[in-house]
Nucleic acid binder design. Sequence first.
DNA 1: CTTTTCACAGTCGCGCGGATGGGA
DNA 2: TCCCATCCGCGCGACTGTGAAAAG
Length: 645
Amino acid sequence: MQLENILPSASINLPKTFYNLATTDSASTSPRPPSQLEYQDVERSESESTSAAGKKYLGNGMLGAEATEGETGRKGSPVLGEDDLTISRRYSIDDLGADRYFLSSSAQAGSDMTNPCSLFPYAGQTAYSGSSASRYPASLHYSSVLPPAGFSSSSVCSSRGQFSGGGYQFSQGPGCLYPSYPSTGPGIGSMPLTGGSAGARAQVYLCNRPLWLKFHRHQTEMIITKQGRRMFPFLSFNITGLNLTAHYNVFVEVILADPNHWRFQGGKWVTCGKADNNMQGNKMYVHPESPNTGAHWMRQEISFGKLKLTNNKGANNNNTQMIVLQSLHKYQPRLHIVEVTEDGVEDMSNESRTQTFTFPENQFIAVTAYQNTDITQLKIDHNPFAKGFRDNYDSMYTAPESDRLTPSPTDSPRSTQIVPGARYAMQPFFQDQFVNNLPQNRFYTSERAVPQTNSLLSPQSEDSSAAASAQRWFVSQQQPGANKLDLSYDNDYSTSSLLSYGIKPLSLQTTHALGYYPDSAFASMAAGWGSRSSYQRKVTTGLPWSPRPSPPAFPDEQLAGAQAKDKLPEETSVAPPASTWLETSHSLKSVDSSDYSMGCKRRRMSPGGSSTENSPTIKCEDLTADEYNKDNPKGMGYYAFYTSP
DNA sequence: CTTTTCACAGTCGCGCGGATGGGA
DNA sequence: TCCCATCCGCGCGACTGTGAAAAG
């Protein structure tokens, strides 16, 4: 079971189909620099990245017409068009962030709310036309689960026959793919396997998608260094639909997302010339647990937290943990799942055992130094390793109980949901809630452009809203029965999952967890750090350890739950199985609603003119009260957030 | 001027060893 | 008394973004 036997030994081939599609799409995709904190542009940015991807996002026939429109309007046109008007109009909802896809008109909305990994077990693949790109809503709503990239529905079952014969194409060149959403694949997140898999379909769910989306809105940047830098957010997936006993290699490949060289100018990312396609170096990262059984992969979250990005070309051969990238190029990570023999050797006799999954929100620009200060702030806010750069970190986590129990819109929200003494233990668990309620003075006040008071959209009120949300979310855990969140307590899965991030003072199980990789999908979603660590050295309680629910159960559950909930109002559609992750949804809701406030806040000044200078204030204050209310739990109602627009 | 590199301070998990407590 | 498990503290090292200097 040596990794050398797996990669890069040319034992795995990428589908030729993929490349063909990629090339095609690259020609039709016009790069357009997203701007930060300009919500229309942000929207467009997302829609841009998802427009091409929309082809594979199209898991819902209802979105077909819109998809066509979107693609047409976007291609080659950086100018705001009709699309953008639409986008602008629905911004207040769209920008609600990761949860937006909960709003899907499909039956999945409800179930997805409950899932830590934004699961979308799309059953209906038939709507996956692949010919017309879904437009923004589709992609956002459905991108949590993507189909295997590069596989057309017709090629899925014979993909190997279309593979290039030379094994993995680690480097770019002919294998350089852009854009990254070439798929005209079949059902979202699923792909039929033939042969030994006997029709098994893998579904992959991006676990920390909300966090990815937050970064994606500002155009994610990833630092690359000589010694290698970890990604943040890192890639974390849940996989279902694998053959329990079959063996698989799981690995990530990072490919060029577009043919352009990028630079950060005037607070925006703009293209400048052609990308260097000839960059040599390793582009693959094999999950250290490869190969392993389908049961293993499905048992828990698959995290790539140790994946490192480097610009050191010399690191390609001797460091399999590093992926060599080029600065100022846009990249798209892809997940590959390859069925192999028990000893890790790919069965060359079967050509249909490679599945590829692409999540557009994982796209990023490699940089040697952060360009966009919004990204920097997001990293600081969310990355546990960057805690040292958070202002007033201590005060955030040690606020008096009175504060956390009685949040006031006029008070600093920072302490509203924090249990004293739980600073370290609880942090991964609630991190996202916290970071969205950071004290105002953690910002560079002198650079803030948005007034802190008076405005309906003032950071204060927004923070308070977020705090209120978070608080409610948090308190419910201590007060079962307070609201529907407690449903999770009736569920072993949720309990254990929650407890995996337990609060020491509450004598809950903790995930010390290799620390950096809290062991739970929940945590990774909440904090962006997830992994499969099983370190329980300091666990003192006897609660059963269950890092994940029984994998085979939740897709179906999810599906069933989703279908059932389809008939229910969002507000009351939380069925017990799905409610397992209700906390998560709420946390996400908080996160993403406060996302908006983050966008309105003035962060740090970008050297070349922060993106925030371009409009955030205007955007924020231009919003109507109604629009704001959509984002404000106190206005429209907390759960109304999930109702379809 | 832009991009890259490097040293730095800060956080925190990991691993080690010692202390402690319970049971044989 | 011995053994084992657990707890605790400490130091190391991994990791982060910062900011200045170097390189192109």
